[in-house]
Simulated scan of single mutants.
Amino acid sequence: MSEISLPTEERSERGLGLRWLSLPRIPYWVQRVLQAVPVVLLIVTMNFFLMRLAPGDMADVMAGESGVVSMDYVEHLRHSFGADQSVFAQYISYLGNILHFDLGWSFRNGQPVATLILERLASTGFLMVTALAISILCGCTLGMIAGLTRRRSVDLFISVASTIGFAAPLFWLGLMLIVLFSVTLAWLPAGGMSTLGAPATGIAGVLDIARHMVLPTLCLAIYYMAIYTRLMRASVLDICGQDFVRTARAKGASRLRTAWHHILPNSLLSMVTLTGLQLGALFSGSITIETVFAWPGLGQLALSAVASRDLNLLLGILLVSSIFILLVNLLTDLSYALLDPRVEASA
C-alpha cells in the first residue's frame, strides 16, 4: 500500500505535538516541592490575618501592666511596635521580613523571635521524636500481634487497652502519672527538664534529662500508640484476606515468613501516611504535655506569647511549626512513593 502523504503544515503540527509529548517528565519530588511553595504563602497569609482578628494588642497589655491609662502612652507604644500602620502595610512588611529570614523582635522578651524559637525547638523536637518513635514501634508491633491473633484473648486484651489509651485525655493521663510515679512512688520527677543544681554535661546530665523525659514521653506516646495499634490491626486484617497472602500460604510459606515478607510491608504503607497526618496533632498534644509537666518547649512559649499578646513571637511559632509539619508531610509523600512505586508512576 502506498503511504498517504500529509500536507506540510499538518506534518509540522503533528511533529510539534510529538515533540511536546516527548518532553522530559517532571520528577515526582520536584512536583511535590513546587506544590509546597503556594501552601507556605497561604500559611503565612492566614496566620497573619487570623492574628489580627483578636481584639486588643500588646500595647494595651503593656499599658495595663504599667498602670498607665494615658492614650498618648498607648499610641506611643503602638507606634514603636508598628501597630499604627494599616493592616496591608504591616502584611507587606511582614512578608519582606520573612523573605529575609527575619521573624521579627519579641518586645516582651527583648530578644529576636528566631533566637527564642531555636532555644525551645530542640526540647519540643526531642520530646516529639522520642514519643513518635515509641508509639510507632510499639503500636505497629501490638497491632501486628492483634491482627495475626484475631478473636483470641491476646487480641481482645490489646484492643481493650488501645481503646482505653485512645479515650483517656492527655492532661488527665499526665496528672495520673505524676500522682503515681512522682507523688506516691517518688520514682521520677514531676516536671521540668533538669534538676536545679545538677550537672548539665556528661553522663550525669544526660541521665538527669532522661529521668525528666520519662513521664512526658510516656504520656504522649500512650495516646498515639493506641491510634497506631488500632490502625495497624485493621490494616493487617485487610491484608490477610488478600489473594497474594493465600497464594504464599498455598506455596508452603510458613506463617512467620508470610507475616514478615508479605503482610508487614504492605501494612506499613498506611502507617507512613498516618505518621505525616498525625504530626500536627502530635505537636498540639505536646503543648498540653509541656504545660502539665512544665517542659520548656515551644508549647509553653506559645502560651506565654498568647497571654502577653506578643504577636511577633506567636506568628514566628506558628510559621515554624507549620513549615515543619509541611516538610514532614513532604517527606512522607516521598517515602510513600519509595515504598509503593505506583504512586510516582501515577503522578
Rank of each mutant, 00 (worst) to 15 (best):
L6N: 08
E9C: 02
L16H: 14
R19G: 07
L23F: 06
V33E: 10
Q35G: 02
V44S: 14
V44R: 11
F48V: 09
A54V: 12
A54N: 02
D72E: 13
R78P: 05
S80W: 05
A83Q: 13
Q85D: 13
Q90V: 12
Y94G: 00
Y94M: 00
I98M: 15
H100Y: 04
F107I: 12
L121D: 04
L121E: 11
A122L: 09
F126N: 15
F126S: 14
L127P: 11
I134D: 03
C140L: 09
I145R: 11
I145V: 14
T149K: 15
R152Q: 02
F157L: 13
V160C: 03
I164M: 10
A168M: 15
F181D: 03
V183T: 11
T195V: 08
L196I: 13
L196C: 00
L196E: 08
P199Q: 11
I203L: 11
A210F: 15
R211C: 04
M213Y: 01
V214G: 12
P216I: 14
L237E: 13
A248K: 10
S254K: 09
N266P: 09
T275L: 15
E290L: 05
E290P: 11
F293M: 11
A294V: 04
L301W: 04
L303F: 08
V306P: 01
A307H: 09
D310E: 11
I317N: 03
I317Q: 06
I323C: 13
N329F: 08
L334G: 03
Y336E: 07
R342I: 05
A345P: 01
A345L: 13
